[in-house]
Amino acid sequence: MKYSNTQLSWLVILRIAIGWHFLYEGMVKLMNPNWSSVGFLLDSNGFLESFFYSLSSDPSLVYLIDLLNIWGLILIGLGLILGFLARPACIFGIILLSMYYLSHPPFAGLRYAVPSEGSYLIINKTLIELIALAVLFVFPSSSFVGIDRFIFKK
């Protein structure tokens, strides 16, 4: 794939921005000894509600989910920022975001305890971030700008 300099610049900026967000979300959770996914899981709504509820009922499972969340977010963030295994990072990011989205889908008639900072109907920022990762996946930039350049030699 060939990009113009402008196209490549904006793809890298988008990648860094999403990476930064993931990294920060992960770090915040890592540094907070009280953080747990339980509250978020219990706040689930919509057609997968019972699935997310059941995840929250087993403490050892919750522990695993917390660990996967924290380190998933941090590693995906680093991967996107550094352009290191950026395409797998996109895939894992999409998986994580789809979990967040599906547990709290902004459908008409569903209400949440987690305060929302905007107004959403079906499309929310989680879904947009997810779509942006999909865009980054199909328009990879890390083999031009990023550590992947050393790995995936053209």
């Binding site: 890298v12 930064w20 920022i81 550094l82 352009g83 031009f144 700008v145 990023g146 350049r149 050393f150």
Partner: peptide
């Protein structure tokens, strides 16, 4: 340069 261009972001 290109490979490590984004490291300063960290």
């Amino acid at each position: 340069l290109k490979g490590l261009a984004t490291v300063p972001v960290l």
